[in-house]
Nucleic acid binder design. Structure first.
Lengths: 118, 118
DNA sequence: CCTATATTTTACCAACAAGTTAATTAACTA
DNA sequence: TAGTTAATTAACTTGTTGGTAAAATATAGG
């Protein structure tokens, strides 16, 4: 038995590949067939098919059937949680806390200078 | 020779693991030693060490030295690009375009009813 | 110098990921 | 029905990931 993989992990794993990110971007311009999506890549069709399976498994695309085509459509919903998760860290990359940290470090080294001079 | 992995891929790959995400969250409360970080997990120390290497390689943590400890500090900067990338899709998960799509679909099926009745 | 503590490195393994080519399925078209 | 187009599945290879246990390294302290 394999531990089921949580949604956030599936989402980030799906995004951790340039080909898959490019596919998603292409899909922002509307529904596309597999060959449409495969076109810009120098990679076999089965390889693309696999990438699409990963995206579908992460809920990032939806597949349908239209004659012999299997059009893919973007489903961005899972990105919402991914975004929320990342946004928790905004205050950190905006360095508000880095400044606090620097301040504390400065204090600490001053204390050292005064209290514990080797 | 291996193709160098782009930053976005490194970032998303690092986030695609619940243990690593938990480590990052813990680091929002300040600098922590490896054993501190390992504490909540039933996983060997070398395993944690590996996760830290992945995070460091993605630039998400910074490591220093303090006596026999190797404290880790959160470096959220790479999350900024990840966030920007994901935010491109906000309009999609907010379904503004889904509504447009539904509208077009409805139009199309009406046309079919009128112009192409089997 | 010896020992304890903190952490990494090494060597190994099983499972998975990303790609390939060849074969197969499915649907349209003449 | 045969042929064409679209896409998937199967089988295989190669490299990576996530974990382990055991050995090695680094530092502090008696």
């Amino acid at each position: 038995m394999k531990m089921p993989t949580d949604q956030l992990t599936l989402t980030f794993a799906a995004l951790a590949d340039p080909t898959r990110r490019a596919i998603l971007k292409k899909l922002t311009h509307g529904q596309k067939s597999v060959t449409d999506l495969a076109a810009p890549f120098r990679m076999s069709l089965p390889a693309i098919s696999k990438h699409l399976k990963v995206l579908a498994n992460a809920g990032l695309i939806e597949r349908s059937r239209e004659a012999q085509w299997r059009p893919c459509k973007l489903r961005a919903a899972p990105l919402k949680n991914a975004s929320t998760w990342i946004e928790q860290y905004r205050e950190f990359w905006e360095e508000r806390l880095d400044r606090l940290d620097d301040y504390l470090k400065k204090l600490q080294s001053k204390e050292k200078d005064h209290d514990d001079p080797k």
